[in-house]
Design a protein around this nucleic acid. Structure first.
Length: 260
DNA sequence: ATGACGGTGTGGCACCGA
């Protein structure tokens, strides 16, 4: 059982790359963020031809999340119940795998722009709501994974310049406290369950040769519930798609679970 | 300090991302 997350920065532009990646990496489920398209434009047919059904939650221009799966998807929920939000950032679904049900919460965390801005305040409200939502989902679904673009570099080692960027967006104590609060629910960062190369990142700025210089951040994550942790066999960042022509600025994170 | 790159929109640049 393999699950993955990828911020594609426009599914319209990146669909050929997603299809090529799925052919080379036939994961059981793939969570996508930043679709930047409405649901009527979602490419269900092309993905079905590749063996994937999809639950999509999009909007025009910004945001948008989808869960692709080789197995049936059930109990699809859009956004966080009780948290009013005009932005399409959260999509939950249960993957009915042969090994049993696996609840996935696909999230596109708020960027937050900079501390002190309205967007940052929105980010903190959103993070607080997510904590409560994950807590509720955990009690209902022991086998739970929280995947997505977290827009938080959890630790200094998750940033190419932790000193220079200290206190700036993705690096603030407030954001990191919210990430830690998710771990406080018993969730674990699958990537950090294993030894990993130094300077492992999942996003690089398009500008100033960010990728070539490995000036990146690790902000895309897969968190797994206590009942899943014993099943996690591997987790890695796949840098290959970042080398494509016309790449997304993010690249996929993949985890392998031994379920059943 | 600013912008650098890339995507979207109804555009001729502005806004947003991270």
């Amino acid at each position: 059982m393999q699950i993955a997350t990828w911020n594609v920065n426009s599914l319209t532009v990146r669909l050929p790359q997603v299809l090529a990646w799925l052919q080379a990496n036939p994961v059981d489920a793939l969570c996508l963020q930043e679709l930047k398209l409405t649901d009527d434009k979602f490419p269900h047919a092309e993905l079905a031809a590749a063996g994937y059904q999809a639950a999509a939650f999009g909007q025009k221009t910004y945001n948008g999340v989808a869960i692709l799966s080789r197995h049936p998807l059930q109990d699809v929920v859009r956004n966080m119940p009780g948290f009013e939000d005009e932005q399409a950032r959260v999509l939950a679904a249960t993957v009915q795998a042969p090994s049993g049900p696996l609840r996935l919460i696909n999230t596109y965390f708020v960027n937050g722009q900079a501390p002190g801005t309205d967007k940052f305040a929105y980010k903190l409200r959103w993070l607080a709501a997510l904590h409560d939502y994950v807590a509720a989902e955990l009690s209902a679904h022991p086998h739970l994974a929280l995947l997505g673009d977290f827009n938080v570099a959890p630790e200094d080692r998750d940033s190419f310049d932790p000193e220079g960027l200290r206190g700036t967006i993705h690096h603030t104590p407030e954001e990191r406290a919210h990430f830690a609060a998710l771990l406080g629910l018993g969730m674990r960062d699958a990537f950090r369950m294993f030894e990993q190369p130094d300077k492992s990142f999942s996003w690089w700025d398009y500008r100033m040769l960010g990728f070539q210089k490995n000036r990146g951040l690790r902000i895309d994550h897969i968190l797994v519930s206590p009942a899943l942790q014993g099943a996690v066999q591997e987790c890695h960042i796949d840098r290959a798609p970042r080398k494509n022509p016309q790449p997304s600025d993010h690249t996929p994170v993949v985890a392998t679970l031994a379920l059943g």
